[in-house]
């Protein structure tokens, strides 16, 4: 049993008087891929942003590598090794691909920087081909690759990725997920991703079902039926 690197207890986050997530408890183990699944508006993004510090939770505890971090700034959480790749606006649009990656290694050890950038290029050769291109001129799929590249360059211990597959062509989604799995296997990091795409079942070790801000299930993949996940999206009949 590996250790819990990330642990969230009874987390509630509100926008105004509306609570987006209600008393959520959640954890991620070392080197695990956790999929947070649920329909639109389930609170997936809010959960990830609360963990990363982009939004302030109303109450609850967030522990990361043994530290209580719920009152820490985004920067301090990042320095400890937590990185969120947002769903939108996840690249620096007017910078070249190369510069996007170069600026993202800012917190990594100097002697590891080259290696991290090469690794990002190795995973996504198209980024290397287009390294001189301005990021906003890449296609949607390539921009998504760059966003993950930025995550790799950041060398975070736990990478939170918000809906990486949204808007990608079905064929690309499968490949993209395989790449995420490879990243975990190569780098031995923890990946937490929120997803609406059921293909996440193929790579996740554990799935965490969220609906209307509340937990529906928290199961290892082996124990989970595809139907349970489908019900979450379509609403169960019973």
């Amino acid at each position: 049993m590996s250790e819990q690197v990330l642990k969230v207890t009874d987390l509630t986050t509100c926008y105004g008087s509306i609570s987006a997530i209600k008393s959520i408890s959640f954890y991620a183990l070392d080197r695990e891929i956790v999929g947070i699944v649920g329909p639109n508006g389930a609170g997936k993004t809010t959960l990830l942003e609360s963990i990363a510090g982009s939004v302030q939770p109303l109450e609850g505890i967030i522990e990361f590598l043994g530290h209580r971090i719920e009152h820490w700034s985004v920067l301090k959480r990042r320095q400890l090794g937590l990185m969120l790749i947002p769903q939108e606006a996840n690249i620096f649009p007017m910078m070249s691909v190369k510069k996007n990656l170069e600026v993202s290694v800012i917190l990594s050890d100097r002697d590891k920087r080259e290696e991290l950038i090469s690794y990002a290029y190795e995973l996504f050769p198209i980024l290397y081909e287009r390294r001189k291109q301005i990021a906003s001129t890449l296609s949607g799929g390539q921009q998504r690759m760059l966003a993950v590249g930025i995550g790799i360059a950041s060398n975070a211990r736990v990478m939170l990725i918000d809906e990486p597959s949204i808007g990608l062509a079905p064929k690309l989604v499968t490949k993209f997920f395989e790449t995420l799995k490879k990243i975990r296997d190569d780098t031995k990091k923890t990946i937490v991703l929120s997803e609406q795409n059921i293909k996440v079942l193929n790579i996740a070790d554990r799935l965490f079902g969220l609906e209307a801000g509340e937990i529906r299930f928290d199961e290892r993949k082996e124990n989970l039926s595809r139907d349970a996940v489908k019900d979450l999206y379509l609403g169960s009949i019973s």
């Binding site: 982009s54 606006a89 690249i91 620096f92 510069k99 600026v103 800012i106």
Partner: peptide, 24 residues
């Protein structure tokens, strides 16, 4: 320079600049 790149990143996408660890 790293400083210059951080400025540029901050001006283009403040939220992401914070997330990657720039002292915005």
């Amino acid at each position: 320079t790293e400083v210059g790149k951080s400025w540029q990143a901050t001006s283009q996408n403040l939220k992401l600049a914070k997330l990657i660890g720039i002292k915005t």
